[in-house]
């Protein structure tokens, strides 16, 4: 029983990372109507940036904060430079552009930092707490805390600030927003910036356990896709719930079902994704899909 509880906590920790990245995908999906396949690579790039900052002597939290700022600026720049020219083009075109971004950023990471695996510091001590004979790793709790705090702050931003409100309005009806003097283009760019920040948080939280390498976010990105689809691709709350539950389920399956083991975690996530899409194409929390014609 104690071990079961432990597995749940560590499942929640990885789930929180999936949830952050899933939320990033949902943010962009809501405003730009496409899945950003480069989301994972953008996160990897910023995580390497954080590594470089620390490598040059910066301590963890200042480097963390500076990385978030860089991620935000980078996300805004990507939208302005790469996405904006194809904004009004068919979905296929935009998706291919994000795949081009994936390729470019991935190769650039390898070019700058090399392909070998690097260790990444964790801000949390490497010990455990015992709560009623359940051993809980501080690392897991810290990861969960940072991710959930980020999500919470973001929720507050959208709920309570003027710009957050305007961004929601643009996602619903860009033309009407324009008539109310909202600069739609910049709101979209801001969305990309915030998504990049979420990705950076996910990357920096994941890196101590999965280690830094150019493909570190690939698998996490797929879990994030699955989480986003599970929650309903246009629902932020769904992405968070989807991410957390996927983390727990995958962790329990790979621990207690021999057939799954560690190798079949990913195909299992894929199977979950397909089953959900077949039974409930709009996901757990999503709206019915309106297809663009």
């Amino acid at each position: 029983m104690a071990e079961f509880a432990q597995q749940i906590v560590s499942g929640l920790a990885s789930g929180a990372i999936y949830a952050s990245l899933a939320l990033a995908l949902v943010l962009i999906y809501r405003s730009t109507d496409v899945i950003n396949f480069a989301q994972g690579e953008m996160a990897t790039f910023t995580t390497y940036t954080a590594w470089s900052l620390m490598h040059h002597g910066m301590s963890y939290w200042p480097a963390f904060a500076l990385t978030l700022a860089i991620a935000f600026a980078g996300g805004v720049a990507v939208e302005r430079v790469v996405i904006r020219p194809v904004e009004r083009r068919p979905e296929l075109v935009i998706v291919i552009v994000t795949i081009g971004l994936l390729l470019t950023i991935n190769a650039t990471i390898g070019w700058i930092w090399g392909a070998d695996v690097k260790a990444f510091d964790s801000p949390f001590p490497n010990n455990t707490w015992d709560v009623h004979s359940v051993t809980i790793s501080v690392q897991d709790v810290g990861t969960l805390g940072v991710c959930l705090l980020t999500v919470f702050l973001l929720w507050g931003f959208f709920r309570f600030t003027t710009v957050g409100l305007a961004m929601r309005a643009v996602a619903i009806n860009p033309n009407a927003s324009r008539l109310l003097a909202v600069r739609v283009g910049w709101m979209l760019a801001l969305g990309w910036g915030l998504a990049a920040v979420l990705g950076a948080v996910a990357g920096m939280m994941a890196a101590p356990t999965v280690f830094l390498d150019p493909s570190m976010m690939l698998v996490i990105l797929i879990y994030a896709f699955a989480a986003a689809v599970l929650g309903g691709i246009d629902s932020p709350a769904g992405a968070v719930v989807g991410g957390l539950s996927l983390g727990v389920v995958i962790n329990l399956l790979s621990r207690y079902v021999n057939f799954v083991g560690t190798e079949l975690r990913l195909p299992t996530a894929l199977a979950v994704l397909l089953v959900v899409l077949i039974i409930r194409p709009q996901g757990l929390f999503g709206h019915k899909v309106v297809r663009r014609v």
Partner: peptide, 10 residues
Amino acid sequence: PEGRGLFPEL
């Protein structure tokens, strides 16, 4: 505008 331009989900 035509169709009122409200934000139905807000």
